[in-house]
Design a protein around this nucleic acid. Sequence first.
DNA 1: AATGATTTAGTACTTTAGTATGAATACAGT
DNA 2: ACTGTATTCATACTAAAGTACTAAATCATT
Lengths: 138, 138
Amino acid sequence: MKKTIFVFSGIIIALLVLFQLSKYSYATGDLSIEIIIAIIAISFLCLGIYLNKKSLHRTSPQVDEINLEKIEKLGISKREYEVLVEISKGLSNKEIAEKLFVTESTIKTHVSNLLVKLDSKRRTQAIQKAKELHIIST
Amino acid sequence: MKKTIFVFSGIIIALLVLFQLSKYSYATGDLSIEIIIAIIAISFLCLGIYLNKKSLHRTSPQVDEINLEKIEKLGISKREYEVLVEISKGLSNKEIAEKLFVTESTIKTHVSNLLVKLDSKRRTQAIQKAKELHIIST
DNA sequence: AATGATTTAGTACTTTAGTATGAATACAGT
DNA sequence: ACTGTATTCATACTAAAGTACTAAATCATT
């Protein structure tokens, strides 16, 4: 919102500056009309590219953003989520246990709970579901 | 390549037309200089947006395009690749066997070969690697 | 202080995954 | 016809994953 206002203010100011510049330059004869037009053309070309880049960068990463609400809605706890992330990285239960400083038994408990909460029979299916639900990054 | 040449040709033609228009209009006094500048500004703003959209649309879907060359380079066969895709969907060996009308034993052979070729210890790790290498869709 | 959820961990068990090896069939290119 | 590769399947095995309990410690909340 704030950015949009800022950008549009910039456009208006730029327009005014260019109009004044064109009038002044023509009156004094310092710059030819072709050069003024060229400057305007290049400026607005760049402005167009800039505006488009901004708008696309704001919309495209939103698609694969992590949906925190869905994680809560599924009743997945902090620790369970940590385990889910490690599973998706391709780690074994033993490796996850070592990484999180707990026993493999604990990880198995977390995994079992995750499978119920994600309605999956296997960890591979859980990965797929978690990605579909946008609760982990692709 | 062809598109780039086409677009640049368009830009040059547009520039020439605008120059001629500006000269003619000023000489005849039909259009004020401000209106000409405004038209040029808007035109190039749109051109900038268009160019940026084209370039981004060409680069962003390329990222998650399947790299067929890499599949061959890794020595992954057609059938093995089919199995890999099913693994990434979260299916078990038995389920894949039923889907592809072969025995579970066959799937196990394919999976073992895949793990070697993808330098992985587990199917979950194979999924991760395959996605990193862009040989399967995210 | 009692309550409910979380995290941890264990045992005992079943199921699935993965390895190693051998072997038959089919198919493509030389 | 021969060769290499792909595909299929089997057996026997080990390893990993997952289930079904039980239970203790922690922690925030009312």
